[in-house]
């Protein structure tokens, strides 16, 4: 009988230890450079941290609507870089992204944006057709066409590998999904070709949604 009590006690300790660990992981890291800024508030110097954020951009979505960084103000969103005729990693990425889309489309509280890195071919009608065939409708998932140089430059602020063209005129690019918070800070980067990492991203999005708006992280 005494032994049993001990077993029970140990089980409780282990059980709560595990719970403590999972409960602890409620804040996602903030990626990118940061620098301190000192402002005068009420004649007193106050030091704050300035985080790296996504740069401004101007694009058009699959419906022909103008979409800029402002269109995403106050949104949690996921971004990736792709092109519609991509024979390599894009189908895997968007097969996985389709799971994310299906998980959140009815709630409408996150957005997905896919920038084409081949704007010459991927015009608005081409992007619309691609979205239709993928089974994407509404405004949860936008496929964006912008100026090629701008998009390539923009990829740097998402901390992904800058797209390149090889000798065969094939585009080489990064298969990452980037999770961006309401303040346009990068909170996660996932391999879009790996279903397990994409599952983790779905969990992280929920964590991010539950985060208080004015959080002081790290």
């Amino acid at each position: 009988m005494k032994n049993l009590t001990w077993v029970g006690l140990i089980a409780i300790i282990f059980g709560t230890a595990c719970k403590f660990n999972t409960g602890d992981k409620t804040v996602l890291p903030i990626y990118g450079n940061r620098r301190p800024v000192t402002k005068m508030v009420n004649d007193k110097p106050v030091t704050d941290t300035l985080y790296q954020t996504i740069s401004k951009f101007k694009t058009i979505n699959q419906y022909g609507d103008s979409i800029s960084n402002k269109s995403l103000d106050g949104d949690i969103y996921i971004a990736d870089f792709f092109f519609t005729t991509c024979p390599s990693i894009c189908p895997v990425m968007h097969r996985n992204m389709l799971n994310v889309y299906n998980a959140f489309k009815s709630r409408g509280d996150i957005r997905i944006i896919s920038y084409t890195i081949d704007p010459k071919h991927d015009s608005v009608p081409v992007l619309k057709k691609y979205a239709d065939k993928l089974g994407v409708s509404g405004n949860t998932w936008w496929f964006l066409q912008g100026k090629k140089d701008d998009i390539y430059k923009l990829s740097e602020s998402y901390l992904v590998r800058k797209p390149q063209e090889d000798a065969k005129q094939q585009f080489i690019h990064d298969g990452s999904f980037i999770l961006v918070d309401k303040q346009k800070r990068i909170r996660g980067a996932y391999d879009g070709t790996d279903p397990k990492q994409v599952e983790q991203m779905i969990a992280d999005i929920k964590t991010l949604q539950n985060e208080p708006d004015q959080i002081i992280a790290q």
């Binding site: 189908p91 968007h94 097969r95 389709l98 691609y130 239709d132 065939k133 993928l134 089974g135």
Partner: peptide, 8 residues
Amino acid sequence: GEGLSALI
């Protein structure tokens, strides 16, 4: 071998 929606 599931393909991808109406694309593949």
